[in-house]
Simulated scan of single mutants.
Amino acid sequence: MTSATVESLVPRHATEVDLTAWCEVFGDGQREASGDSPSVTALAGRLLAEEAPAVPRWVARGDDARPVVGVAELRPQSRDPRVGFLRLFVAPSARRAGVGSALLTRIAEDARRAGLERIQATAPAGEPGEAFAHTWRGARELLRLERQEQSLDETVLRRCRDLAACPDPARYRPVYWHGPVPEPLVLAFGQAMGHVLDAPGAALQMASRQGWDREAVRAWEAQLAAGGEHVMVHAALWRDTGQVVAATVITVAGDDARDAAQHDTVVLPQHRRRGLARWTKARHTLLLHERFPCVRTVGTTVNQRNLPMIAVNRTVGYHTVHERLLVELPLADGARR
């Protein structure tokens, strides 16, 4: 087993070499897990611009010439200050050598001292990720998640063209924006996005969005675009009131990016089972292809219990790439087995 030395990393005080290496390992791990990640330059810029209090971060150094072989960050959750969400990645060449264990042990110690009671994290289903998660005494599985991808080939684009007609044009009309939400729609969009929490297991993954006002929507936009990403939204409006009743969100890292990320999709309860999710997703795929012709793949993550959304995604051409677990590790009595 390779020994690993774990240290805290404060981006503003780190050397350029360490910060770049941290961003490289983190970005590679994030792309492997989620299919997309900001560039090293964008990620480093985001970390350096971060306001206090800073997110705790760590580096693991191996006993070879590579300066950083493992990285992690632990973000406090606004929905519950006792819980931290952990992202931990190990460079492929250093896996199965104790680097992840060394990181997790140090992170747990620091998190306990900071007053946290639990850590949540995702881990690949199956070996070795699932086994690693369950080496922590008391670890429990909260959700099983599917990582899905949509390939923007001619077969999928043809399918989306067939689905792009409005299911009820007398009642609904489409609206699209690239960048900030148009000012007249901010409050209606915020109200609609609160219903993202209606999805099974969503409350385990994000803070409440009930009562989202203009400030909350603008903060959400800024967070999505912090690494220079383009933010695109396709929505459906109820013609009688102009209310946003459905929306889906995609981000693209740059004009020449080959991958895009599909984030939230929401339909208001009284407008569900009318084909709006399928319609907005299909139209959004076509608009994405038109605006960013270099994009070849769109990725998203769905809870396996969210059967309606999985069915919609299948219809517009998504397929499952791999599965992940959302696990929770207790800290009060937690220890490696």
Rank of each mutant, 00 (worst) to 15 (best):
L224Y: 04
P330C: 04
E50V: 02
S39R: 01
A139H: 14
T280C: 15
R118C: 01
E51Y: 11
L43F: 10
V327S: 00
V231M: 08
A235M: 08
N306P: 05
R113T: 15
W212C: 09
H289T: 12
L86P: 00
A165M: 12
W212G: 05
R171A: 12
V55D: 03
T280D: 10
A125P: 13
S208F: 09
E7N: 02
S151I: 14
Q120D: 13
R278H: 04
I310L: 15
A311R: 14
E323H: 15
G45M: 05
L86M: 00
L268C: 06
S3R: 13
P184M: 06
R95Y: 03
R337Q: 11
L157P: 09
D153Q: 04
F132D: 02
M193T: 00
P53G: 08
D333Y: 14
R79K: 08
L326H: 07
L116R: 00
L276S: 03
R274E: 11
G45N: 01
R79C: 07
K281I: 04
G129D: 02
P182W: 10
A219I: 06
D28P: 03
V231W: 07
E221F: 12
D259R: 13
L268M: 09
R258F: 05
N313W: 04
T320F: 05
D333L: 10
A52K: 15
Q150E: 04
Q150I: 10
L9K: 00
V59C: 12
A260Q: 09
A4L: 04
G194F: 09
L103N: 04
F26A: 03
R336P: 09
V71I: 11
H230Q: 14
P38D: 04
N303M: 06
D333P: 05
A246S: 14
A42L: 01
Q210S: 14
V186G: 08
R144F: 10
Y318K: 06
T301Y: 08
A332I: 14
V298I: 06
A49F: 12
V156A: 10
A139R: 11
M206Q: 15
L143S: 05
L325E: 00
P308I: 05
H319A: 15
E127S: 15
F292W: 13
G27E: 05
H271V: 00
A202S: 13
L43H: 07
D162M: 12
V90S: 01
R278Y: 10
A44T: 03
A133I: 06
C160N: 07
T265C: 10
G70L: 07
L287A: 13
S3T: 09
A108S: 14
R106A: 12
A188Y: 03
S8Y: 01
D63N: 13
R46G: 02
T155I: 12
E328T: 15
A102S: 14
R96A: 14
R171S: 11
F26I: 01
Q148L: 13
P184W: 04
D18R: 08
F89E: 05
S3L: 11
P174R: 09
R147A: 02
V267T: 15
E290C: 12
A91W: 03
E7A: 02
H13M: 08
L19H: 09
D64T: 10
V295P: 00
L276G: 03
R272K: 12
F85L: 13
L268S: 02
R159L: 10
A235Q: 01
R337C: 09
E7G: 01
S151T: 14
A97G: 13
L142D: 11
L145A: 02
L185T: 04
T320L: 15
A235V: 06
A44W: 01
C166P: 14
L47Q: 06
W279V: 11
